[in-house]
Amino acid sequence: MTAIPALAVEDLSVEFRTRSGVVKVLEHVGFSVDKGETVALVGESGSGKSVTAFAVMGILDAAGKVTSGRAMFGGSDLLALSERDLAEQRGRELSMIFQNPRTALNPIRRVGRQIADVLVRHGGATRNDAPRAAIEMLKKVRIPDPERRAEAYPFELSGGMCQRIMIAIALACRPALLIADEPTTGLDVTTQAVIMDLIGELAGESGMATIFITHDLALAAEYCDRIVVMHAGHIVEAAPGRALFDHARHPYSAKLLAATPGETVSLDALASIPGGLPDLRRPDLPPCRYSGRCERRSEACDQPLPQRTVGEHHVVACWNPL
């Protein structure tokens, strides 16, 4: 692992304006991804994983607004780029795999054409050689019989196959940064394993940095170098996968692990996390957004959150870590 950050997100805050008030969806989020490294963003729904990715990609909903922060990528701040410059970067340098391949693919365009489109738009291929290159990509993501499959429409392919098409599109121009938003949700474990291996291999080959968004902690631990745990728009802990499993320091990470059916032997051994996410519209949100659900709460928790380094690459935002 070389220590050149491909992407460094610093102090990112995002707000959404809604009819019922301003929702502070992300607050002071910071993390970095090195070249060739895979970093997982994990957390429950509503924790801000996808919003972080969307903000970096510059595809936030119109109601969303970046209120502070930078996302340094290849010497420039992605958050400050004009839409035109960003559009140049997306597809070529930055790529994203979306959650549901069936809705993300164009249903009325042959999949080979969809890959060729990216190559023509961003990869400098001509309309004549793009179809060839598209078939090459299909081979790379191990789609059997690629010449025939290139002529298929998304509805003619299985979910796992569509996901591989998405990956082929995302990787067609050898991006420097890939954001994969739950790329294997809804796929079988066997297909999931094949897809994760594939992303890992391609990342290793080209030194691509990967942000992997998931709610499956075991999956994150198996395939990612580091895990970043998010809760209600804050990063609460960042650690190498194994370190997190062996000794989670933030009370929320520990609860999340205890709720994951993994190596436990009985259903009764699993524990749910009491309480819910705080209402992010409240003007008086406590500095620690987990404090309302936390068993280790003390008076110190009313002070601004610390960033404590508790091990190698292991940071926790808590006054009373485990």
Binding site: Q192, D197, L217, A218, A221, E222, G241, R242, G262, E263
Partner: peptide
């Protein structure tokens, strides 16, 4: 199928079977 279940513990991932 069983060997494809994600494992956090590297020791348990010894013999991966891929189809």
């Amino acid at each position: 199928l069983i060997s494809a279940i994600p494992q956090a513990d590297p020791a348990q991932r010894a013999d991966r079977l891929r189809l």
